[in-house]
Simulated assay, not measured.
Amino acid sequence: MQVLVTESLKIPEGINVSINNGKLVVKGKKGELQRDISSIRGIEISIKNNIITIESTFANRKTKSLVYTLLRHIQNMFIGVTKGYRYYLKIIFTHFPMSVKVVGDEVQITNLIGEKNIRKAKILDGVKVTVKGEDIVVEGIDLEKVAQTAANIERASKISGFDRRVFGDGIFIYKKEVIE
């Protein structure tokens, strides 16, 4: 029995999509995103008449889910190159005043629950981080890099060995949005 899965996606105005040497390249007004698709087996991707077609001929459960995952990644790339993504984080401290600053390609957190060492979180390429009072704003066109940078900041401020009901100090993601 042959199972055919075919999904189509119209390319919006102002976006240029190409496939070169196993890389899917999406260009828009905000920039350019690339995704390596050379390792994906059993799926054909074609671009004709401003429509991207993703299809798999002998689709089992795993291959079918891969088709829809790839479709969603391409939609996220479209949103990224036209609008962009933004994550908001809140700096919360109750006992010791925490200091957060951006230095180069990392966020430095000092005086978290009175610690003397500086905690560092990596900022990925193409992501902009700004600290405004008790808020941290993480922006960029690549959803995965923006989300990973926000997660790096949240993870760097995680405290262990204390009662979380008493020591609620840290930096936490509280809002995610598409930039309009």
Rank of each mutant, 00 (worst) to 15 (best):
I92W: 01
R35F: 11
T149N: 08
A121N: 12
S56R: 00
K132Q: 13
I173Q: 15
S160I: 10
K23L: 13
S99V: 07
K48W: 12
K145C: 01
K120T: 00
K30R: 10
V67S: 03
V137H: 05
D135C: 02
L124Q: 09
V166S: 13
G170H: 00
I74Q: 02
Y85G: 12
I37Q: 03
F58A: 08
S8M: 07
N117H: 02
E106L: 07
F167G: 01
H73K: 09
V131H: 02
Q2G: 12
F172A: 09
E139A: 09
V5K: 08
T94P: 01
K83W: 03
Q2F: 09
V127K: 09
K27R: 14
E180Y: 10
K176L: 08
I171N: 14
V138C: 05
N49R: 04
Y87W: 13
I92E: 12
R41I: 08
F93S: 06
F162T: 12
I118G: 01
G31W: 06
V26H: 08
E139R: 10
G140E: 09
S46K: 14
M77C: 08
S8P: 00
I179K: 10
T149C: 07
F58P: 02
P12G: 14
K116Q: 06
K175R: 15
T57I: 10
G42S: 11
V178K: 09
K175Y: 15
N20C: 00
K23I: 10
N21P: 09
T94Y: 03
P97I: 01
K27D: 14
N50G: 05
G168N: 05
F172D: 08
M98Y: 00
D125A: 15
N20R: 04
I51H: 06
L124D: 08
P97M: 01
I79G: 06
T53I: 11
K23E: 14
R61N: 08
A150V: 05
F162E: 09
I19E: 14
N152D: 09
G168A: 06
L112Q: 00
V166L: 10
S56M: 02
K48F: 14
Y68P: 11
F96C: 04
I15P: 07
E7H: 07
V166G: 07
N20G: 02
T6S: 15
L70W: 02
I45H: 06
L124R: 09
A121M: 14
K158A: 14
N20D: 12
G28E: 01
K101Q: 09
I74W: 06
L89K: 07
I141W: 05
V107E: 07
L4A: 11
E32M: 13
G14A: 01
L24A: 12
K10L: 01
K83T: 04
I40W: 02
E115D: 07
G126C: 12
N49C: 03
R164F: 12
R35G: 10
Q108Y: 00
G42P: 05
R35K: 11
K62C: 00
G14D: 02
E154T: 15
I52A: 04
I74D: 05
I11V: 04
I54V: 09
I113Q: 01
R165L: 07
N50E: 13
I173G: 13
L70N: 00
K30Q: 10
R165P: 00
D125W: 13
